[in-house]
Amino acid sequence: MPADSGSIAKVDLDHRGRSWYVDKAVGGLVFVGGVSAIVFVMGIFVFISREGFGFVFGTLDIGEFLTSIEWRPTSENNPRYGALALIAGTAAVTGLAMLVAVPFSLGAAIFIAEFATGRTREGLKVLVELLAAIPSVVWGFIGLSIMSPLIIDTFDQPVGVGVLNSGVILGLMAAPIMTTIAEDALKAVPDSYREAAEAMGATRWQVVWQVVLPAGRNGLVAALLLGVGRGFGETMAVLMASGHAINIPTSPFDSVRALTATIAAELGDAPRGSEHYQALFTLGIFLFVITFLINLAADFAVRRGAPRG
């Protein structure tokens, strides 16, 4: 077409303009951002492994580590590194925390996302976010000064710190952030799903139960996971509210000690490079591996739970 060839000739096809370079530069920056996440995870893993691996494959008896409750890293003649009680402590506290947090956060998320309107909704969202911003040491303080006497009085116990105290504190701590994530997951469910179900004569609750919750399942699992991760990783509040006693809990009132709290409390006193120091890093590796496994399991559950496409 001769009439067109004239106008095309005027367009410069050989020089890249500013927008081309900006595009490449932004692409590169975003790539670095994305890759950094991988680099940091690898870096942390290399760091804790370097400090702990020599010990794990040398001195440490892994069987003893997993099955013994004797944690005596500072003993002069006979140091023992049994982490079972610490593992049990963390598991018990996290488990109870989830029992507290899941109903609260799911209920709050459903109410905010599906039932509340206007100012109630906005107000609640702000409050929940505010709650999520409370520092963990404040929660620990609440555990020590409010929960503890409450438990002593109510249940007639000699001590108020332990699984119950730290589990409830941790649950209340994890609930706001779980609520926020779960609410986002529910809000991400398209309104057309709700309308379709409502038009069929479904009640509000039927819409939520039959359509919205299944549709938002992946996000809800993510919220739960974040809560479990929070429970596993939380240190200060657990250190303050759990009693910090090496013990396999047999009742909710027993004092326990968590993996994280052990690292936080002992690392400062352990000479760098010593067996004790390396043993603490071994706890770190263990936490890392468990978190990784939980993520993996949840990923698997999410994928398997979805009907075949």
């Binding site: 057309s192 309308e195 379709a196 038009a199 069929m200 039959q210 359509v211 299944p214 549709a215 009907p307």
Partner: peptide, 26 residues
């Protein structure tokens, strides 16, 4: 009342469940 009245919206809404469950929902 709504159960007596079927509605078809402009954009298709396949609910995120199986084909069977979509029809069995009502």
């Amino acid at each position: 009342l709504r159960q007596r009245i079927g509605v078809v919206f402009p954009l298709p809404v396949g609910l995120p469940m199986t084909i069977y469950d979509n029809v069995a929902l009502s």
